[in-house]
Every structure is written in C-alpha cells, then in structure tokens.
C-alpha cells in the first residue's frame, strides 16, 4: 500500500471510528459499516495493513466493536463473518471451554458485546487438541461482570451443550485465529497508547506550573519519551512479523504492545496529575480498555512466560524476523 492510499484509508477508518466514538456504544454497527465500505475486499488485497489501520483507529477512538470477531472468524475460515467468538476466559490456560468424554461441550468464555450474533464459535479443548465448535447464541447464559470497563462490552458466558446441539468446524486452526486476534489486539493497544501519549503531550504543553509549561520539566519529558519509545517498539515488532512465523511473531507483538500500553497509561496519568485521576477525564477509560484488551487472548505477562518457557525448552532464543531487506533491485 503506498503512503497516499494508506492515508486515505486511515482518514476513512479514523472518521468512522471517531463518529462511532462520539455517538457512544451501541448506536452504530461498525462491522456493517465496514462491510459497506468494502472491508472484505480490502482485507483480501491488504490483509496486514487493513487490520493495522482499523484497529489502531479503533483503539485511538476508544471504540468497542465486534471487529475482532470478524478478524478471528475470517482466520477460522468461516464464510459467515458475523459469527460471534467465545474468547477463552483470561487466565493461565489457552482455552477455557472443553468437550467432555460424553461429548458435551462445557463453555466458559467472553463475548464481545452482548453479541447480536446468532451463532457463536467456541474454541474447546478436546483431548490433547483444540477444536472449534459452533453453537447457537441461545445456548449460552450470561454471567454478570462488575463492570471494570463497561464500555468494552465484554460479556461473560457459560453453558453446557449436548453433542447434538453443536457442530465442529472443519479444518479450523484455533492457533492461527489466535494469532490473527493477537495482531489485531496489538494494533488496538498501539492505538490506545498513541492516543494517550498525544493527549498527555497536548496537556503538558498547555498547562503551566511554576510559570512555565509542565512539558518543559525533564521529569515530564522523560516519562513521555519512554512511553513513546515503547509505542515505537510495539509498532516495529508488529511490522517484523513474518508470514512463516506468524504464531510466534503475533504472540511477541501482543506482549510488547500490552506492556507498552500499560506503561504508557501509567506515565500519562502521572504527568496529568490529579486531573488524570478523575472519572471525567478520558484517560482512565483508556487505562481500563488497555487492561481489558491486554487480558484477551493472553496478557503480556502470560505471553512473556510462554516465551520464556519456549526458550528454556529450545535452549536458545528465537530471533524475531530475519535481517532487514534492502530496497527491491
């Protein structure tokens, strides 16, 4: 994608996201609008950049949508991209639903939005492998959440489904879908961090103490510079993911992005002082969303542990991406 086209898409997607953000959750169907804009074609032509742009803009505008479901469904090879996904409960295990010996499917997971979707894809442990089952939305019951980030629209769901009431998705590779989801989430975390840094930078340029802008103080400058460094690192790692190493690359990317976004949130709160600690000021909503997205599909802490374990097993560290390539001859 050339720079001009990218800018055009960024404008369009950013405009959509900002509008939805301003209207508030639930007012518009982001996924439907994306489809109208030709999203499906774009993802075929530009699978990487389209996701990067969409999720960065979604993060920056703090929009909650089911776009992630769309990406994961596509990676699962589902023709019907409107299927909802029952994401594993955040925690030490990779999947939290399972198919029991008697064939019943026990579901524990998170949905994005109350999920208008009629059908839900459920990754489930079956023996030593992970399968993806499709169940109807009605088979799930909702568990109340205490609302850490209500606006994120997560719903906790459970259910037990008899074998005859679900079907297994042929040839679905949950690991590949997870990788796609992690990349999307990493981009969204980058969008969140980027927005927080911009806002905080704007704030410290404006506000004065001791007769000068806060932004002239090194303590303030250095915290924001560190936050920005983390942001650049997250972007670079996303760019370094190579097609033949997407599983590992996506895992590292989400870990780096999650860590960077959480650190950025802390730095930005610190430099905005008491204002940053209030409900009215938007920063905390970004802080919440950062934690919520970090929790999905592997928190940075869980992922770094996985990386470390892999390293211990291999006896050496994997190199992320190969050496840079020069300009095409």
């Amino acid at each position: 994608m050339d720079a001009e086209t990218r800018e055009m898409y960024r404008k369009t997607l950013g405009g959509l996201m900002r509008r939805v953000g301003a209207e508030g959750a639930g007012e518009s169907d982001v996924v439907a609008e994306l489809r109208e804009l030709g999203w499906d074609e774009l993802t075929v032509e530009e699978p990487t950049e389209s996701v990067a742009l969409l999720f960065e803009e979604q993060g920056a505008a703090l929009v909650a949508s089911r776009a992630l479901d769309m990406v994961v469904a596509a990676a699962l090879g589902l023709d019907d991209r409107s299927v909802g996904i029952a994401y594993p409960e955040p925690g030490p295990t990779n999947v939290t639903s399972a198919i029991n010996d008697d064939g019943r499917l026990t579901i524990a997971g998170l949905l994005l939005g109350a999920s208008e979707a009629a059908e839900i894809a459920v990754p489930a442990q079956a023996g030593t492998g992970v399968v993806v089952a499709i169940v109807s939305r009605g088979a799930l019951s909702v568990v109340e959440m205490e609302g850490f980030d209500d606006a994120a629209g997560f719903t906790r769901v459970t259910g037990v489904v008899e074998a005859r009431h679900y079907r297994l998705l042929d040839g679905a590779a949950w690991a590949v879908a997870v990788a796609a989801g992690r990349r999307a989430l990493a981009h969204e975390l980058v969008g969140l961090a980027s927005h927080m840094i911009d806002r905080a930078a704007g704030y410290v340029i404006e506000r004065e103490q001791f007769g000068r802008p806060l932004g002239t103080f090194q303590a303030v400058q250095h915290r924001l510079a560190d936050a920005y460094t983390g942001l650049v690192a997250a972007r670079s790692v996303l760019a370094a993911i190579e097609p033949d190493d997407v599983l590992f690359g996506s895992l590292v990317a989400k870990a780096v992005a999650g860590r960077a976004a959480i650190r950025a949130a802390h730095s930005c709160t610190q430099v905005t002082g008491a204002i940053g600690c209030t409900w009215e000021y938007e920063l905390h909503r970004y802080l919440r969303r950062t934690h919520a997205l970090d929790a999905l599909l592997g928190s940075w802490r869980a992922l770094r542990k996985a990386i470390g374990q892999q390293m211990a097993e291999d006896g050496h560290a994997a190199r992320l991406g190969s050496a840079p390539e020069g300009p095409a001859a």
Partner: peptide
C-alpha cells in the same frame, strides 16, 4: 528480557 531484545531488534 526477550521482549526488550525483540523490541530492539525489530526497531
């Protein structure tokens, strides 16, 4: 440590 080095390498 790996996250730090991957950040450096990719950047």
């Amino acid at each position: 440590v790996y996250l730090d080095l991957a950040s450096l390498r990719a950047t």
